[in-house]
Design a protein around this nucleic acid. Sequence first.
DNA 1: CCATGTGAATGCCTTCACAGCC
DNA 2: GGCTGTGAAGGCATTCACATGG
Lengths: 237, 237
Amino acid sequence: MTTQDLPSTAGNPESSGRTIPPASVARLTIYLRALNSLLAEGVERASSEELAEAAGVKSPMLRKDLSYLGSYGTRGVGYDVQLLTRTISARLGLTQEWRVAIIGAGNLGRALAGYSGFTTRGFEVAAIFDADPSIIGTEIGGLKIHNTADLETVLHRTGANMVVLAVPGRVAQDLCDKLVAAGITSILSFAPVVLQVPPHVQVRKVDMATELQILAYHAQRAQESELDSETRARKAQ
Amino acid sequence: MTTQDLPSTAGNPESSGRTIPPASVARLTIYLRALNSLLAEGVERASSEELAEAAGVKSPMLRKDLSYLGSYGTRGVGYDVQLLTRTISARLGLTQEWRVAIIGAGNLGRALAGYSGFTTRGFEVAAIFDADPSIIGTEIGGLKIHNTADLETVLHRTGANMVVLAVPGRVAQDLCDKLVAAGITSILSFAPVVLQVPPHVQVRKVDMATELQILAYHAQRAQESELDSETRARKAQ
DNA sequence: CCATGTGAATGCCTTCACAGCC
DNA sequence: GGCTGTGAAGGCATTCACATGG
């Protein structure tokens, strides 16, 4: 790939863009949330300092992140909240609607199906699946639970183009394979296993056990350094 | 801080340790899971190649990560599954038991309370809280739901030293402040807001909306490059 | 003047290649 | 001989400092 087959940015100031570093993409979603709060409060302008504060980052970082989108601020003034909101949304792909299928109607699947943060911004729950015959056919929030045996058919019929996997680890890879076979390329997995997928499929993982373990690591270190300083204090006596 | 007051590693081959890079800590939890699977299958030894495969990383990375723990492999042979499991567990702080309080007994809180992956490894649910009078006093999985008004008392009585916050964004900061005041220093938050805490408090955030938005970004890019290549193909005709 | 946008500097993480050891 | 452990190299991400432009 040479400089020449770079996408159509040349005469196209609109979707002005090269690829955004992954770390920045993650933070853009946070900025978006901060901006939505400001929007709700009726705030029209904000400086990088104010936005950074709200997002919990330092202002130079926020400015660098925003610079990947192009130049949407006004020097000496700040950013127009509405414009910036629209710009980030567009760039993250939130102006089109995404149809999400939830696989697994256990506790977690139900919680997700009822999660309002879902529908509020560009994500629509398109279908819910489970393998348990005793709950297939019953409804959750107005959506009938489908049989995972009908995965491909129902995914296509409902137009689902994203999937949230909320199933036990032992069946996750099997379902994942079926999703890939059905043409799904975006998967958010809550299953505590490493999913093997072809390179064109994006998988993101949310893992409570991992997060708790990371907290445990830091908590233990804090304990140790506490003990250390006690020991030191005792020696110093 | 000079080299001299480095912790007690000198004559202490046991907890051989300097601080592990954050990125490595995160992966160690994954290795641990892979090791537990192997253990369950009765496998006694594994090479860095095999472990890396199971964890979805490249072998040099796994070896570097493990090197932060010290030297627990055998050259020419590989790693003893049991020994490595114990070593990682100890270093992550999983040999002591952590008592977790869940704040918020909505759909998500209930799902978490019932999550088996919790209790299986060093984490015990110590208490559950909610602010809704209509469910306070009822039980979930044998645990009575406490009033968030009694937060501090109950946290101390139950010996909780970690908290999972599963409450709506608008009340998260308020509860977080109360947790900090009660002496909690490890918080896993599912609330879609940036929590402000003093530096000695560790907060980790799990955020489904963010994860979906990141997927949307990549999905949109995939769409675009697909369109691009179609256009190019058409032009080439 | 003031706050944005950005090249340059720094630091962290990952990858590589191979020395060291069983 | 084979696989671990690790210094060195390379690639990202973050921070800094300031030039730029309303």
